[in-house]
């Protein structure tokens, strides 16, 4: 990545040049836009979109790529699942498996399953299984309150 700074009177302008599908470019844009409380992702047409944490229903990691699901669409993002949970834990993000994060505010119902697992039904109708390892953490989290 080449960084060039030109000092110029007047309003500060930032021009970022790069391929449309560059993940590096997406990260830079995300930082520059200063949307601290938004997640930047792209859809299948590579259209960039800022997703607010409240829109996130759940996210999963498939082959080292993180996909975020909202009620209407799916986006890929450069943010890891751990980062997603750490950044928006306060907004309800909860790691419920090695490769899944759910938004507790987008859970319609929970069902206790054999083997200590918990099944979460999301607003989208999808059922996400909270693994045996993470189920006690979920119980503690919802007991603690929002």
């Amino acid at each position: 990545m080449e960084i060039r700074v030109e000092y110029h009177p007047g309003e500060v302008q930032v021009i970022v040049r790069g391929p449309k599908d560059s993940e590096e470019l997406v990260s830079i844009l995300s930082m520059l836009r200063g949307e601290q409380d938004k997640l930047w992702g792209w859809d299948e047409h590579r259209t960039m979109i800022a997703i607010s944490p409240a829109q996130i229903v759940w996210a999963e990691m498939v082959e080292n790529k993180v996909f975020v699901y909202t009620e209407k669409a799916m986006y890929q993002t450069t943010l890891g699942l751990g980062d997603l949970e750490a950044r928006w834990e306060e907004k309800g993000c909860f790691r419920c498996g090695k490769s899944v994060v759910i938004n507790l505010n987008a859970v319609v119902s929970l069902r206790s399953c054999p083997g200590g697992r918990i099944e979460a039904r999301m607003v989208t109708g999808e059922k996400v299984v909270v693994s045996r390892r993470y189920a006690p953490l979920l119980r503690a989290r919802i007991q603690e309150g929002g």
Partner: peptide, 28 residues
């Protein structure tokens, strides 16, 4: 008993706590 009574009761408790969590979150 395990499948229908204990797990059902556990699910009811989980959902009650979930609603409380979501309500508290909304209030915040």
């Amino acid at each position: 008993f395990g499948d229908n009574v204990a797990m059902h009761a556990d699910s009811v408790r989980l959902n009650r706590q979930l609603r409380q969590f979501q309500q508290q979150h909304q209030d915040k």
